[in-house]
């Protein structure tokens, strides 16, 4: 079996997911040994931008340049894996959607000019190109990226959790912050895989892994409304990492 040619790319993001790959200390050599790493700008200097069997792409599409790069990588790659919540759901960059851009330029850069050419709606990769596999997380979980590489080496998709953070939270026998402490916890609509990290430390889930396939945001709103939260509170919480989550009105 010839080693798969792999590229790791970053669009607009904090580079945390690429860093998470580099942080796979014990397994990093195995990963590098199992693949033919053609491009990883953040970690190596000799990069070849030809064809890839698998491309891992981090970050959201914020600029025109991002979109061009993404289309180029898609063209050259057999399999494209979105890594991190920005790539999968738009993440933090997309929380700017819906806010007047000029206002943001003024606040952040003290100018009204679109200096970085980022006036467009921020989008996750799947809104622009075909994505073959999504590995969300802010940042991604080490075991999941290793599982993804291991499975892709054998030509199969990894089995990643499709259930909610609550499921993992129950496995850990945590005191439920939503039911018992009336806190705004996004666990019921957020994709598991972090081992319910935040509730295990007594902090409500902020939804950093993005939503489950079918988030019942309407029901969670009903639950929280009873506890005194407003629609605005929920939108703010749910959309920090996934701008597209809607809270349907009940009939």
């Amino acid at each position: 079996m010839s080693k798969p040619r792999v590229g790791i790319f970053g669009l607009t993001s904090c580079a945390g997911d690429q860093l998470a790959i580099l942080n796979c200390e014990d397994e990093l050599l195995d990963i590098i040994g199992a693949v033919d790493l053609k491009s990883f700008v953040m970690a190596q200097s000799d990069n070849e931008e030809k064809e890839f069997d698998v491309a891992f792409v981090e970050g959201a599409v914020v600029t025109e340049e991002n979109e061009e790069k993404l289309r180029e990588v898609r063209e050259k790659s057999a399999i494209l894996v979105a890594i991190g919540t920005c790539a999968c759901w738009g993440g933090i960059p997309a929380s700017a959607n819906g806010i007047e851009r000029v206002e943001l330029y003024r606040q952040v850069y003290d100018t009204e000019e679109d200096y970085f050419k980022c006036g467009r709606t921020v989008l996750p990769l799947k809104e622009i190109v075909r994505v073959d596999l999504s590995v969300p997380g802010c940042p991604i979980e080490k075991d999941q990226i290793i599982a993804a590489v291991g499975s892709l080496l054998h030509g199969v998709s990894p089995v990643l959790p499709t259930y909610a953070v609550c499921t993992e939270c129950r496995f850990k026998e945590n005191r439920c912050l939503l039911v018992k402490d009336d806190l705004l916890c996004c666990g019921p609509i957020t994709l598991a895989g972090c081992g319910a990290r935040c509730p295990s430390h007594g902090l409500p889930c902020k939804g950093c892994r993005g939503p489950v396939e079918e988030p019942n945001a309407a029901s969670e709103f009903d639950i929280l409304k009873e506890k005194g939260y407003t629609r605005h509170d929920l939108e703010k919480a749910f959309r920090t990492f996934a701008y597209s989550i809607e809270i349907p009105e009940r009939a």
Binding site: Y163, A164, C166, T167, R170, V212, N216, A218, S219, D222
Partner: peptide, 13 residues
Amino acid sequence: GEKCLSCGSCSIV
């Protein structure tokens, strides 16, 4: 069905 969040907590516990 409208209320359920599919969190699976009921069967886990």
